[in-house]
Every structure is written in C-alpha cells, then in structure tokens.
Design a protein around this nucleic acid. Structure first.
Lengths: 139, 139
DNA sequence: CGGCATCCGTTTTGATACTG
DNA sequence: CAGTATCAAAACGGATGCCG
C-alpha cells in the first residue's frame, strides 16, 4: 500500500508532547479546536487538494468538486481566506476572473491531510465492515 | 517544538499516491469522506485521546470532556462503536459499570490525530493572526 | 464570471428531566 | 451509574434568483 515508517515516528512524536496538545484540545475555547472544524468541514479539504497543484478559479474549483452550491463554496473560500489558508486575487477583466491560491500556511496543511487520507484509504473497509456487522447484530 | 523529519516523509508519501486518495475523496459517495466527518466531529477526537491511555467509564469520559450532554456523548460513543473504533463492555454490577476501550482500529487512529494536533499547535497562532488581520481590514 | 441575498430543509448539538 | 426521552436551538448545506 504505502511505506509505513510513519507509525513509530508519530508515536514518538506523540509521546513527546501528549500533555501539550491535550491541554490545548481539551479546552473548548482553545483555537486549536478550530483546526479540527476546518478539517471536518465538507469542502475545505477538497479545496486544499485541488489548489495544491496551483492557483484555480472559482468555477474551476466548482467544476472539480461535485455538487456544491456557489454560496457554500464561497463561504468555504472566504473562511479559508480569513484563516490565511488561501489568497483571493481579483483581476479587473471582463468577464471577471478570480483566482485562489494556497498560502504557505495552506500548503503546510497538505501534509496532515495526506496522513488522514492515507489512514482513510487503508482502514475504510474495516470501518464499513464494522458498520455492517453492527447493523446486522440485532436487526 | 518537535522534530520535523515529518514533512519530507509525508511529501514523498503523498507524491506516491496523489491520484489514489484524490480519486476517492472527490467522490461524495466514497466512504473515505466518512472518515473526515469523524475527525471533524466535535467529540470523537477527544474520546480517542482520552481512551488512548486505557479503558474509561462513561462518567469518567464525561468528566474529562468539557460540557457534553449525556445524550451527545452517548451518540458519539455509539457511532464509534458502530464504526469499530471502540468496544463497549457492560458489567452486571450494582451500580452498573460500562467501560469503553479503543479497538486496534481505534488505536491506529491516534496517529493521524496526533499529526493534526501537531499541525494545529504549530500553526494556530498564524491562523488567529490571519483572522485578526482579515477582520481589521475593513471594519 | 463570480458572487451576494433570501428562503428553507436537514443535521447537529444542547439543556433538562426522568429511569433501569 | 449510565443512560433514554423530550424539547428546543442553531449550525450547516443547499436551491433559487438577481446583479456588477
């Protein structure tokens, strides 16, 4: 599937800092929580992946993502802009053109997303299997 | 802060499989999406972290997480049980005791969560700074 | 083209009270 | 103790229509 020197590395990493990020994450008011909200957001992750290849226009993004209402995509992009993940550049042309580009911060987010994506690919079948088994238990 | 041999490793990892997980994540019906929902879930991540130290009881979990309505915690735990992330063991005692334990699958999720947590800690200040700057722009 | 405004249904989250 | 039941609020996602 993929190399996995990752586990030990991350385990060690985690051991070194357990209380640090635990202390943060368990505080509901800590902005760290906000990061999780972004990851869990339905479209942010997709946008990051799409923009990882370079700048894209609004409609371009819309086309590559499945069905997204323009309003929702706008919301997502605005939020990402506010969070400093993307820059929004408006070109004074006719017809108008708006390009979205990942910032350094946004690019750095590709890593964690990749790790999640990796985990998801490897383990998803176990989740769906578990669900099926669970649902079949009682009926 | 923390060692960072991680970036290159993950970059390579990602380079090897870009289209693979991209192809998945961009399909709204692919169960891979479901993983993101769990990560984004408000309490699942916290539960995983709490259980990473060993089994815990319902009230124990409740106490360590901030304000959670019992109903919501139950929902979270049931969903995690259905997904095969935790096991739920009921002891026939008085008063009743119920212990939640991470499965192998659940434990394997600690890794990705740690990576996200790492990223969050390192970059959160940049996000909040970006937000402040953004909000101050127009007023 | 790239939105913003409006309205609406669904899902998520929660407070509160009560039970095996 | 470990929930369930009920009610209520709100965040989220989306469809539609208009506009610079």
């Amino acid at each position: 599937m993929v190399t996995n020197a990752l586990p030990q590395l991350v385990d060690r990493l985690r051991a070194e800092r357990t209380d640090a990020y635990e202390g943060d994450l368990f505080d509901p008011d800590c902005p760290t929580r906000l990061v999780l909200d972004r990851i869990g957001d339905k479209w942010t992750v997709l946008v990051v992946l799409l923009l990882s290849d370079g700048p894209r226009r609004f409609t371009d993004l819309r086309g590559h993502i499945g069905r997204v209402a323009p309003k929702v995509l706008t919301q997502t992009l605005r939020r990402m802009e506010r969070d400093g993940l993307v820059t929004r550049e408006v070109f004074a042309e006719v017809p108008p053109r708006v390009e979205y580009t990942l910032t350094d911060l946004g690019r750095s987010l590709i890593e964690p997303i990749a790790v999640i994506g990796d985990w998801a690919e490897v383990h998803v079948h176990r989740i769906t299997a578990a669900q099926a088994a669970y649902d079949a238990r009682d009926t």
